[in-house]
């Protein structure tokens, strides 16, 4: 900053501000209607900027949560377990498939390390693609919490040994700590994990949703257990219909078609 004699600067600035109607000139207590209007306009602007900042913050928060979950996928598929664990808050919980609940960041680290067979990085010949797609992010009104549904697509296996297709939805919770979004609760339902040969039409679930809990018991049993493919389950949506549920005025048409498509047995209402 260039040094200018303070007095000259002050006088110059005050005259400018005075001309601009931003400061009172002459008697400090006296204000003109123009000055009052300028002050009111600044106050209004300040309020509007704050509102706009809050709206931009929402967009930034949603993007940060997408970034967090996508980064999770990129670390998981390379077996970078420490990077994965560091995405969670200290008091986070993790529940994948039917393995049960693991509490706290260090147990989560242990879980992922066990998933990787105790080593950092993949084994030679291991494929662990886990695509994180279809985010539905819902921000809490407090600005510090959020929920999101995602779909995880898995192409996994070991060359020469086995290969599986997998998929299922996450319903996760996130928390903002010191301005940084972290995973607070991760819950993934394994809809299918089936051998590549024959796929989901010919095979039941490959591991019945048990990945590591037989060797690393969880801190708590599964919060809800709905079996394994071909059992199916609709994990509840954390979000409300953003428009509204359709309310038919009378019984919906197409009943004949629907009845024809209905399997002969195993119907649940």
């Amino acid at each position: 900053m260039t040094r200018i004699p303070p007095q000259r600067t002050t006088l110059h600035l005050l005259s400018l501000l005075c001309a601009a109607g931003l400061v009172a000139c002459g008697e400090p207590a006296a204000t003109t209607p123009e000055q009052d209007a300028a002050a009111a306009e600044l106050a209004a602007l300040s309020t509007e900027v704050a509102l706009l900042e809050a709206r931009v913050q929402q967009v930034k928060d949603a993007n940060a949560i997408k970034r967090l979950q996508r980064a999770y996928g990129y670390y998981v598929e390379e077996g970078l377990w420490d990077e994965v664990a560091d995405l969670f808050s200290d008091d986070a919980s993790l529940e994948l498939a039917r393995d049960g609940v693991y509490h706290g960041k260090e147990r989560i680290r242990a879980y992922f390390t066990a998933l990787g067979g105790g080593q950092r990085g993949l084994r030679e010949g291991q494929l662990n693609e886990q695509l994180q797609v279809m985010p539905v992010v819902t921000l809490g009104t407090d600005g510090q919490t959020a929920k999101a549904r995602w779909r995880n697509i898995l192409l996994v296996g070991q060359l020469g040994e086995h290969a599986e297709w997998g998929e299922g939805p996450f319903e996760n919770e996130y928390v903002k700590e010191d301005g940084v979004w972290k995973i607070h609760r991760m819950r993934w339902q394994q809809a299918i994990l089936v051998p590549y040969q024959g796929g989901w039409a010919a095979n039941e679930d490959y591991n019945r949703g048990i990945w590591v809990s037989d060797t690393l018991p969880p801190d708590a049993p599964p919060t809800d257990d709905h079996g394994w493919w071909p059992e199916t389950y609709l994990p509840p949506f954390h979000f409300r219909n953003p428009v509204g549920t359709y309310q038919p005025e009378s019984a919906p048409a197409g009943g004949v078609e629907a009845a024809a498509a209905r399997p002969a047995a195993g119907v649940t209402p």
Partner: peptide
């Protein structure tokens, strides 16, 4: 709503995979 009946019964899930992904 009538069109959607062509793709299966409402809430009908058992033993069926109907995973339509949007990318």
């Amino acid at each position: 709503r009538r069109n959607l009946d062509l793709y299966g019964v409402q809430n009908e899930l058992r033993g069926t995979l109907h995973n339509h992904m949007q990318y």
